[in-house]
Amino acid sequence: MASTETHDTPGLFRRVMESEHGFLALVLIVLVVGLGLATDRFLTGSNAVAILHQSSLVLIVAVGMTLLLITAEVDISVGASLAFASCIVMATINATGSIALGALAGVAFGAGIGLINALVTTVLRVNSLIGTIAMMMMLNGGVYLFTREAVQNHHQLPLFPKIATGFIAGIPVPVLIAAVVAAVGWIALSRTRIGRLFLATGANPRATRLSGYSPERFKTVAFVVTGALVGLAAVVLASLLNAGQPTAGQGFELTVIAAVLLGGTSLMGGRGTVLGTILAVLILKVIDNGIILLRWNQDLQIIVPGIVLILALYMDQRKRGHHAG
């Protein structure tokens, strides 16, 4: 409160901290430089590709989750849905011999679950946190009605494993898929009419309705997009595991939501960016990677992101408090 004169020329550090994603970018840079100094196995081409590869599944779903959180809703069922959808993908390919049909089935299943979540939220008016926890329980149980054990690869199509392990122009296929999803999400949110209305829906649903739009419609779209992206991720997952795995999605929803929140998207809706989510996913995966390379206790892979999340949200609060005052 003391000196007001220095406010006009904030230092570089301060400007970085107060810019939209400066803090996240700074954290990422510090992590990369720090790990680069700590171990010579970090800053290698193959390790960079590995990190991107591991980021792709989370990022694909996190883009959808960013849109959903922006409309002030959340989907806790994405992990359970991912596992179930991976079984559907594999079973469909086994039955039809077509990867395209398998992928389609997975995406349709995910989108369908998203639609049900949307209807429970917008029509039955059940809080989406509760509604999607219920959906998670139903899917976790339901998948065992569908298959008692992992759905194995009976079709042996040579192209199938390539979805997860193949390269196009030197870039892993999952990374390409994630990049396309993120780019489309980024553009949609920042440049298009529907992106604006996602933001408006979360920022003030009643004002949005008074302005002649249906906030429920945008919430529904966000749920369905998130679900469809879960289906897409399930195709990659099934290929990666070379099986449909009923238990594969455990904890996945937490990683996704943690990344979206770390990326600066508000749990209250109305605020968030895809760029923030991308940076946050990379931060979490670099931390993962670092813990492995440094041969730390692997349980830290779960503990450290928790700490990072709290720190990040605390910094964000402080930043906003400063602006408000």
Partner: peptide, 20 residues
Amino acid sequence: EEGLMLDTSVTRNMTLATLD
């Protein structure tokens, strides 16, 4: 509660109904 998007810009608040 029913008018403003408080943390959104003046422009975006003003053009909400006219976005189309």
